[in-house]
Amino acid sequence: MECNSAHHQTLMTIETAEQWVDRSNHKDLEGLLGLTAPQIEIAGPRGAGFMNNADLEEWLERANLQLATLNRYAKDEWIVLEQHGTWLDEDGRIKGEAIVFTVLCVKDRKVHSLARYDGKEQAFQASGLSDEDKVG
Protein backbone atom coordinates (compact mmCIF):
# COMPACT_ATOMS: atom_id res chain seq x y z
CA MET A 1 0.00 0.00 0.00
CA GLU A 2 1.44 3.33 -1.04
CA CYS A 3 1.27 6.33 1.24
CA ASN A 4 -0.15 9.41 -0.42
CA SER A 5 2.50 12.02 0.42
CA ALA A 6 0.10 15.00 0.19
CA HIS A 7 -2.35 13.18 2.46
CA HIS A 8 0.52 12.28 4.82
CA GLN A 9 1.62 15.95 4.87
CA THR A 10 -1.94 17.03 5.72
CA LEU A 11 -2.12 14.50 8.59
CA MET A 12 1.23 15.72 9.98
CA THR A 13 -0.02 19.31 9.71
CA ILE A 14 -3.18 18.48 11.67
CA GLU A 15 -1.27 16.53 14.33
CA THR A 16 1.35 19.27 14.78
CA ALA A 17 -1.29 22.03 14.92
CA GLU A 18 -3.33 20.12 17.53
CA GLN A 19 -0.23 19.56 19.66
CA TRP A 20 0.73 23.24 19.30
CA VAL A 21 -2.71 24.42 20.47
CA ASP A 22 -2.71 21.94 23.37
CA ARG A 23 0.73 23.07 24.58
CA SER A 24 -0.30 26.70 24.14
CA ASN A 25 -3.43 26.11 26.27
CA HIS A 26 -1.26 24.55 28.99
CA LYS A 27 1.45 27.22 28.68
CA ASP A 28 3.94 24.41 28.06
CA LEU A 29 6.75 26.60 26.73
CA GLU A 30 9.25 23.75 26.36
CA GLY A 31 6.73 21.69 24.39
CA LEU A 32 5.87 24.69 22.21
CA LEU A 33 9.51 25.39 21.42
CA GLY A 34 9.84 21.83 20.11
CA LEU A 35 6.97 22.47 17.69
CA THR A 36 7.90 26.01 16.61
CA ALA A 37 10.32 27.15 13.93
CA PRO A 38 13.21 29.33 15.24
CA GLN A 39 11.42 32.36 13.80
CA ILE A 40 7.64 32.34 13.42
CA GLU A 41 5.56 34.78 11.41
CA ILE A 42 2.64 36.11 13.45
CA ALA A 43 -0.42 37.94 12.09
CA GLY A 44 -3.44 39.08 14.02
CA PRO A 45 -5.66 41.99 14.95
CA ARG A 46 -2.63 44.11 15.92
CA GLY A 47 -0.72 43.57 12.67
CA ALA A 48 1.96 41.18 11.47
CA GLY A 49 5.59 40.52 12.27
CA PHE A 50 8.15 37.90 13.16
CA MET A 51 8.75 36.47 16.59
CA ASN A 52 11.80 34.57 17.80
CA ASN A 53 11.49 31.66 20.20
CA ALA A 54 12.79 33.93 22.96
CA ASP A 55 9.62 36.05 22.61
CA LEU A 56 7.27 33.07 22.77
CA GLU A 57 6.94 33.00 26.56
CA GLU A 58 5.98 36.68 26.76
CA TRP A 59 3.52 36.24 23.89
CA LEU A 60 1.90 33.27 25.66
CA GLU A 61 1.51 35.22 28.90
CA ARG A 62 0.13 38.28 27.13
CA ALA A 63 -2.42 36.28 25.13
CA ASN A 64 -3.68 34.35 28.21
CA LEU A 65 -6.04 32.46 25.94
CA GLN A 66 -7.67 29.03 26.00
CA LEU A 67 -8.76 27.56 22.66
CA ALA A 68 -11.19 24.71 21.97
CA THR A 69 -11.24 23.50 18.37
CA LEU A 70 -14.67 23.14 16.77
CA ASN A 71 -13.75 22.49 13.11
CA ARG A 72 -10.59 21.82 11.12
CA TYR A 73 -9.81 22.67 7.50
CA ALA A 74 -6.48 21.36 6.24
CA LYS A 75 -4.52 20.72 3.08
CA ASP A 76 -0.79 20.14 2.68
CA GLU A 77 1.04 22.44 5.14
CA TRP A 78 -1.93 24.74 5.84
CA ILE A 79 -4.58 24.36 8.52
CA VAL A 80 -7.43 26.60 9.65
CA LEU A 81 -8.85 25.84 13.10
CA GLU A 82 -12.29 27.21 13.91
CA GLN A 83 -12.06 27.66 17.66
CA HIS A 84 -13.93 28.90 20.68
CA GLY A 85 -11.51 31.26 22.39
CA THR A 86 -11.69 32.26 26.04
CA TRP A 87 -9.51 35.18 27.14
CA LEU A 88 -8.61 35.28 30.81
CA ASP A 89 -7.35 38.10 33.00
CA GLU A 90 -4.41 37.68 35.39
CA ASP A 91 -6.49 36.08 38.17
CA GLY A 92 -8.10 33.56 35.81
CA ARG A 93 -11.46 35.28 35.38
CA ILE A 94 -12.99 35.22 31.91
CA LYS A 95 -12.68 38.62 30.26
CA GLY A 96 -13.95 37.64 26.81
CA GLU A 97 -15.13 34.81 24.59
CA ALA A 98 -15.41 34.57 20.82
CA ILE A 99 -15.19 32.26 17.83
CA VAL A 100 -11.81 32.75 16.16
CA PHE A 101 -10.08 31.22 13.16
CA THR A 102 -6.44 30.24 13.69
CA VAL A 103 -4.31 29.71 10.60
CA LEU A 104 -1.08 27.74 10.92
CA CYS A 105 1.52 26.83 8.34
CA VAL A 106 3.41 23.65 9.33
CA LYS A 107 6.61 22.49 7.64
CA ASP A 108 8.71 19.57 8.89
CA ARG A 109 6.55 19.27 12.03
CA LYS A 110 7.25 22.89 13.02
CA VAL A 111 4.82 25.82 13.02
CA HIS A 112 6.27 28.48 10.71
CA SER A 113 3.40 30.95 10.78
CA LEU A 114 0.40 31.67 12.94
CA ALA A 115 -2.46 34.05 12.24
CA ARG A 116 -5.73 34.65 14.01
CA TYR A 117 -8.82 36.08 12.35
CA ASP A 118 -12.37 36.87 13.45
CA GLY A 119 -13.88 35.56 10.21
CA LYS A 120 -13.60 32.35 8.23
CA GLU A 121 -13.31 34.19 4.90
CA GLN A 122 -10.17 36.04 6.07
CA ALA A 123 -8.67 32.76 7.31
CA PHE A 124 -9.45 31.02 4.02
CA GLN A 125 -8.00 33.92 2.05
CA ALA A 126 -4.76 33.80 4.07
CA SER A 127 -4.39 30.02 3.81
CA GLY A 128 -5.82 29.26 0.38
CA LEU A 129 -8.19 26.75 1.99
CA SER A 130 -11.97 26.49 1.59
CA ASP A 131 -15.00 24.67 3.04
CA GLU A 132 -14.07 21.75 0.77
CA ASP A 133 -10.92 21.20 2.88
CA LYS A 134 -12.91 20.41 6.04
CA VAL A 135 -11.46 17.46 7.93
CA GLY A 136 -13.67 15.09 9.96
Rank of each mutant, 00 (worst) to 15 (best):
N53H: 07
N52S: 10
K75Y: 12
M51F: 02
Q66F: 07
L65H: 02
T69N: 13
E57S: 03
A74T: 11
D76G: 06
G47V: 08
L70T: 13
E58Y: 15
A68Q: 15
L60R: 00
A54Q: 04
L70V: 13
N52G: 14
L65S: 05
L65G: 03
L60F: 01
W59A: 09
E58M: 14
N52K: 10
Q66T: 04
F50H: 08
L70K: 12
N52P: 05
T69G: 12
D55A: 02
E58K: 12
G47I: 11
W59I: 10
T69I: 15
A74Y: 12
K75S: 09
R62A: 12
G49R: 09
A48V: 02
K75Q: 14
A68L: 12
G49A: 04
L65V: 04
G47Y: 11
T69H: 12
L56Q: 04
N53R: 08
N64F: 04
A74N: 08
N64C: 01
D55Q: 11
A74D: 15
Q66L: 14
L60H: 05
D55H: 04
L60T: 02
R72W: 08
E57D: 09
W59Y: 15
Y73E: 04
R62I: 11
M51G: 01
G49Y: 04
G47T: 01
A63N: 13
R72D: 13
Y73H: 02
K75W: 13
E58G: 10
Q66D: 14
E58W: 15
L67E: 15
L67A: 06
N52E: 15
D76P: 06
K75N: 10
L56G: 01
F50G: 07
M51L: 06
N52D: 14
E57C: 00
A63H: 09
L65Q: 08
G47C: 06
F50Y: 09
L56W: 12
L65E: 13
G47M: 11
E57F: 00
L65M: 07
L56M: 05
L60D: 05
A63W: 15
R62L: 12
D76M: 11
Y73N: 02
E61L: 15
A54Y: 03
E58I: 10
A63M: 13
N52H: 09
N53G: 09
E61W: 13
M51T: 02
K75V: 03
W59Q: 12
G49T: 05
Y73Q: 01
N71S: 03
A68H: 14
L60P: 02
N52Y: 10
L67V: 05
A68P: 05
T69Y: 11
W59S: 07
Q66P: 07
L60A: 00
A68D: 15
D55W: 00
E57N: 04
Y73P: 00
L67G: 10
E57K: 06
R62P: 06
N71R: 01
F50R: 11
L60I: 05
L56T: 00
G47N: 07
Y73M: 01
M51A: 03
G47R: 03
L67P: 09
Q66R: 05
L67Q: 13
A54I: 00
L67I: 06
G49I: 05
D55P: 01
